[in-house]
Design a binder for these strands. Structure first.
Lengths: 191, 191
DNA sequence: CGGTCTCTTGACGGAGTTCAAAGCTAGTGG
DNA sequence: CCACTAGCTTTGAACTCCGTCAAGAGACCG
């Protein structure tokens, strides 16, 4: 479990085995069942999750009671409510397991110690967030550029893994439309 | 000019005057006129811009020839095509001055030297990107949660400065709808 | 097997786009 | 300092994508 994390760190920053064993001590393993919540709306977000295995999603519930999934995290991705994690303010999102998942957790209270004591982790997280920010820009571009139907076809070709692992109604929710409309698109593309 | 940047850095990381004078040497000042392009689609993005004064926007042109503004940057914000800057790949966006602007520029070729020689800048940029990423998550949430009309009213109350400084058709473009529809919304809210 | 999720179907309505044209504003040069 | 032009904003009519509602058909789990 930690081994996989070490490999991931090494993609962005150099780390010796000795230093990694110290770093590893800041993290705790955690298992979650399908549909289990790691964070609920209104709670203070105390943890940042590294996904070793499984899928997490982040969603919120609008005033009509409809869920909107804004993000998925699979193997080797980080998941947290960044804003609430940083400011220790009440979360506007839920975080939930889509599949049973194995996680590494860094608590907010230890995050700054980790960064202070291991400057390579500053670099690591700088790279992670820089990349995540860049990816988000491209995602926003896609939403401006394409119709709902095009978003689905793009998602389908770019992320086929998700179609296998995530139910349709969550994909519709992530792409920003209704399950009914997704069903209509699917019908069209079969015939 | 550098003074303003120093104040900004100090919000996120400690820096002595001696070290800052070394850091400042990595940056170059640049002035741009209104409507001048800093980056065009297809170019490799070689620079990251810190806005000292003025407004920049990032936009792309879709297959029908319509511009979509995806981001504004005002005083004390950073602007670049993050993905193309990191990978030195052709940019999918333009970056342009909305108002005449004063900038500090860090070239891609010196970015990694800066980070290597001044670890506090790792921390600074980690904080900047983490915050930017969190803000983008909230922006995405807003797009899922609200109608176009609501987006406008929210933008209007949250960012009144922009309404003064940015023409309507760019605001419409940023919010993801047509100038015609913005005009209709405005008419409704006056009467 | 029984019940609760999940996916599909179809009718209808409305938010927002498209197109075309006219009115307005601001910058530029003479 | 005015006149001209290009760029920006408004208007209105027709149209379309997609949401809503309601009901039925599968699929999965205990």
């Amino acid at each position: 479990m930690l081994e996989q994390f070490k490999i991931h760190i090494k993609k962005f920053a150099e780390v010796s085995d000795a230093e990694f064993s110290e770093i590893g001590a800041y993290f705790q393993p955690q298992s979650v069942k399908k549909k289990e919540n790691l964070l609920a709306e209104g709670e203070v977000c105390k943890a940042n999750y590294f996904v070793v295995k499984g899928i997490l999603r982040k969603f919120f519930i609008n005033e009509k009671g409809v869920e909107h999934t804004t993000e998925f995290a699979i193997e080797n991705w980080w998941m947290t409510e960044t804003f609430a994690y940083l400011n220790q303010s009440p979360s506007e999102f839920y975080i939930q397991a889509v599949e049973p998942a194995e996680l590494l957790v860094i608590h907010r209270s230890r995050y700054e110690d980790l960064l202070r004591n291991h400057p390579l982790m500053e670099k690591y997280f700088r790279c992670i967030y820089q990349k995540a920010y860049g990816a988000t820009q491209m995602r926003i571009k896609f939403h401006y550029e394409h119709s709902r139907e095009e978003l689905y076809h793009h998602f389908r070709t770019r992320e086929p893994q998700f179609l296998q692992r995530v139910p349709q109604y969550l994909i519709a929710s992530y792409l920003g439309f209704t399950p009914e409309y997704l069903s209509e698109i699917r019908k069209k593309s079969i015939s």
